[in-house]
Design a protein around this nucleic acid. Structure first.
Lengths: 259, 259
DNA sequence: CAGTGGTCTAGACCACACT
DNA sequence: GTGTGGTCTAGACCACTGC
């Protein structure tokens, strides 16, 4: 901690740690901005105050605020637009729809292919199994919402997904609302439930479908599928969704850029 | 282009473009540093000149050099070490060995699992098919090197890989040198052939193995495998490797972090 | 035109590593 | 101590947007 920092000290004076937990000012500013994002002071799609305003508010220079915003923008939490301002990132109205969906057609791209057709197969409330509870940081038996849906491209069923959502934050979510909503599911989560998905982890395997899966995807039991298990997190690394996807990869593939 | 720029103008004066191709100073500096990396002026693992030296060399301020280096570091081309200097990134001796390998054990991590056992199954020179040539930006019939190898974890063959490398840059690569080398293959490419892989694209599918693949991986033909097709690029987006991997996912999974 | 983010500079000081 | 990268500041100016 710098002695000229205008912010509270991060370690008590009578118990100095060996690693003094030095944290640069801009990191602390980043934390404060994050708090405002979590608390909903600035909502997805809205603009946050200008750099000068934030600098005055936190009593630091514009450059320090800038570096904090830079990091939040590279984390995809904020979006800068020159001449207009800095905006809270959103899954809706964003040119990159389906930011977390990495399945792309072998030829062409998502634009040439057109939008997916969605069908909600099932949507019900139930009690979390030990496995689901662990993934969502709940307790076994807590209320969860389970959704099963099929995405089709050009009339061909391509993705079968099972989702589990914590019952509390998603109270009131029904099959109707899911079916009626046009746009990414994560956009609905933002606008209707105030839950913004920030990052996710995926575990990918190759599997053979069970009977119900082969029927819904209209493929033989012998057709290998990509199994994509995703845990999506909101602010503060809180898991808010477990999703098990089964992707047909006969005319699509999962694309990943390594760097 | 800024009028105070000490560098050459980027567009001719008699053919002004509608979008004047304004490029900030630090981007131009980034390009100059990139040139030095490509030309081999600074080799993988070595340190580059200090920020102050580079600022003097390019006649800009330290802050401008800093921003250029920041971007190159976030692209994984450079590594900053406080108090020591800035170093050219390398696939060798880097704590993240196998930076491009996303297959991880279901339990534990790469450290608990220990190193992989490698076996070179085949290594021969041949002429590029149209498909291979296209992927490597060569012409059909150009000389390429084809390698097949198996990676095992804990004695269990888990990865079968076919690689194609352009014959020119990799002249002199033999099965012996591959087998004798301990460490990541991309590290050998750096030290022996001056080829540094910078980024890669992967296309992932679920497939069933053909007979030869099922034998090498010791699984039945009915075991679905992850098919991972990778094109790896060196500086300047030049493709330098096509790799087709087949991963067993019964006790491992492909991990991907989305953000 | 005013307001926003984006770039560039110059200087001061801090944290870390080596000698 | 010296040299490195890392942080912070203050001010000037540029580029983009919308009134």
């Amino acid at each position: 901690m710098n002695n000229h920092s205008p912010l509270a000290d991060t370690h008590s004076s009578d118990a100095p740690t060996l690693t003094p937990a030095f944290s640069p000012l801009y990191q602390q500013i980043k934390g404060l901005i994050l708090q405002s994002l979590q608390s909903g002071e600035w909502k997805p799609g809205e603009s946050i105050p200008s750099e000068m305003e934030l600098a005055a508010r936190y009593r630091v220079s514009q450059g320090t605020v800038r570096k904090a915003i830079d990091e939040l923008a590279s984390d995809n939490l904020l979006v800068r637009r020159q001449g207009k301002g800095t905006f809270v990132a959103t899954h809706a109205e964003q040119h990159v729809q389906y930011r977390f969906l990495k399945l792309v057609p072998d030829q062409g791209d998502l634009n040439t292919e057109g939008p997916a057709q969605r069908e909600i197969v099932d949507c019900k409330r139930l009690r979390a199994s030990a496995e689901i509870a662990r993934a969502l940081a709940l307790r076994t038996g807590d209320a969860v919402l389970q959704v099963r849906r099929v995405l089709s491209f050009g009339g061909i069923p391509t993705i079968l997904e099972d989702l589990w959502l914590p019952g509390g934050p998603f109270k009131g979510l029904t099959a109707e609302r899911l079916a009626d909503y046009h746009g990414p599911m994560y956009a609905l989560f933002e606008t209707e439930f105030g839950v913004r998905m920030v990052r996710a982890d995926e575990k990918i395997r190759a599997v053979l479908p069970v009977e119900s899966q082969s029927q819904l995807l209209q493929v033989p039991r012998s057709t290998p599928l990509l199994s994509v298990e995703r845990v999506a997190y909101t602010y503060n690394d809180t898991p808010m969704e477990l999703r098990r996807g089964f992707y047909r990869t006969d005319s699509h593939h999962y694309h990943n850029a390594l760097s």
